[in-house]
Amino acid sequence: GLTEEQKQEIREAFDLFDTDGSGTIDAKELKVAMRALGFEPKKEEIKKMISEIDKDGSGTIDFEEFLTMMTA
């Protein structure tokens, strides 16, 4: 499992990506986040990433899903 410290770091990354503070990361926010990390993702790639992570089919990534992605 994760230490509380690791969870906190992932939470901070999540909050950075969640620019509108909605508690979820949408495609637009993910794209901005990827760019910040030096990637140039295409729209299809973003969609694919979200569909792989987005277990509940909401079209957005919540913290639990993000946590799973970061620790996979």
Rank of each mutant, 00 (worst) to 15 (best):
R35T: 09
I10F: 12
K28V: 08
A27K: 07
L67S: 01
D56F: 08
D18Y: 03
M34E: 02
F14M: 01
I50H: 02
I10G: 01
I53Q: 04
D15T: 09
M69K: 02
F14W: 04
R11I: 03
Q8V: 08
L2M: 09
L2Q: 03
L37D: 01
P41R: 03
L30D: 00
S22F: 03
M34C: 10
D15Y: 06
D62K: 09
I46M: 06
G57P: 05
A72N: 08
A72F: 09
E44S: 11
Q8T: 08
I53D: 02
E44D: 08
E52L: 14
E44W: 04
G23S: 05
F66K: 00
K43V: 13
Q6E: 08
A36Q: 12
A72C: 14
L37Y: 02
T3I: 04
K7A: 10
G1H: 14
G57S: 05
A27C: 10
E64Y: 08
S51G: 07
S58T: 12
E9G: 13
E64N: 11
A13N: 03
E64G: 06
L30R: 00
L67C: 04
R11H: 03
K48N: 08
P41T: 12
S58E: 06
G38H: 02
E45S: 11
F63E: 00
I46F: 09
A27I: 14
E5W: 10
E12F: 09
T19G: 05
L16C: 14
K55S: 09
I61K: 00
D54E: 08
E44C: 13
D15V: 05
T24M: 05
S58V: 07
E29S: 10
E9K: 15
L2H: 07
G57N: 09
E4V: 09
E29Q: 13
M69N: 02
D15W: 07
K42I: 11
K47N: 11
D54N: 10
R35E: 15
I46C: 11
I46N: 02
S22Q: 02
Q6G: 06
E29K: 10
F14S: 00
D56S: 12
G1S: 12
F39P: 01
G21I: 01
G57A: 07
Q8D: 05
D20S: 03
I25L: 14
E52P: 02
F39W: 14
E9D: 09
P41Q: 05
R11F: 04
K42C: 14
E52A: 11
T19I: 14
L67T: 02
M70N: 01
G59W: 05
K55N: 10
I25D: 00
F66D: 00
M34F: 05
T60F: 08
T19M: 11
F66N: 00
D20P: 01
E65Q: 15
K48Y: 02
T60H: 07
E9I: 14
I61T: 00
I46A: 03
T60N: 06
E45V: 14
R11C: 05
M34P: 00
G21L: 05
F63V: 02
E52H: 13
S51K: 09
S22R: 06
F17C: 10
S22D: 10
L30E: 00
G59D: 06
T68V: 07
E5H: 12
G1F: 10
Q6P: 01
P41C: 15
A72Y: 07
E40S: 09
T68G: 11
T19L: 08
F63S: 00
I25W: 02
G23F: 02
M70F: 11
K48A: 12
F66T: 00
I53S: 06
E45L: 14
I50V: 06
E12L: 12
T24H: 08
E52V: 12
D15M: 11
R35S: 10
K48H: 11
F39C: 14
S51V: 05
K55F: 07
R35Y: 04
M69I: 13
G59H: 06
E9T: 14
L37R: 03
T60V: 11
E5L: 09
F17H: 04
G1Q: 10
T71I: 10
F14I: 01
A33Y: 03
K55C: 07
R11N: 01
D62T: 15
M70S: 01
D26N: 10
I53F: 15
F39N: 02
G23V: 01
E64K: 07
F39T: 02
T60M: 08
M49K: 06
G23M: 02
D54Y: 08
E4Q: 10
D56R: 11
L30Y: 01
D20C: 06
E45Q: 09
I46V: 07
L67A: 02
E4N: 10
K43I: 15
I46P: 01
F63I: 06
R11P: 00
K47P: 04
K31D: 15
K47H: 10
K55P: 06
I10C: 11
I61S: 00
I10D: 00
E52K: 12
K43R: 05
A13R: 06
K48R: 12
A36Y: 14
E64S: 08
L37G: 04
D26V: 02
L16F: 13
D26P: 11
Q8S: 07
K28D: 15
R35C: 14
F63G: 00
K55L: 11
D26F: 05
K28T: 08
F63Q: 01
E40F: 11
T19F: 13
T60E: 10
T60P: 03
E64M: 07
E40G: 06
L16G: 04
D26H: 06
R11D: 01
K42G: 14
S22I: 02
G23I: 01
I50G: 03
I10L: 14
A13I: 15
L67E: 02
V32T: 13
D18G: 01
D54Q: 06
D20T: 08
D18A: 04
T3W: 04
M70G: 01
E64Q: 10
G21Q: 07
T3R: 05
D56V: 07
E40L: 06
E44Q: 09
A13E: 03
T3Y: 04
A13G: 02
D20N: 09
D56A: 06
D18L: 04
T60C: 08
G57V: 05
F63D: 00
P41L: 15
K42N: 15
D56C: 10
Q6D: 06
Q8P: 02
K7D: 03
K55V: 10
E65S: 11
D62N: 14
S58W: 06
I10S: 02
E12G: 06
E9R: 15
I10W: 15
Q8N: 09
A27M: 09
T19E: 07
A72V: 09
Q6M: 11
R11L: 03
E40K: 11
L37T: 04
V32W: 13
E5F: 10
M49W: 05
R11M: 03
T71W: 07
K7W: 10
M70V: 14
F39D: 03
R11Y: 03
I61E: 00
G1R: 11
D54H: 09
G57M: 11
D18I: 05
K55A: 08
E45P: 02
M34W: 03
K47M: 14
M69R: 04
A36D: 05
M70R: 01
K43F: 14
K47L: 14
L16T: 08
D54R: 06
A36R: 12
R35L: 08
I46W: 08
E29H: 13
D54W: 07
S58G: 06
E52C: 15
A33W: 05
F63Y: 05
T3Q: 03
S22K: 08
T3H: 04
Q6A: 07
T24F: 13
D15C: 08
M34H: 01
G59I: 06
I50P: 01
F39A: 02
R35W: 04
L30I: 08
K42F: 09
E4P: 11
M49R: 07
M49E: 02
D54F: 11
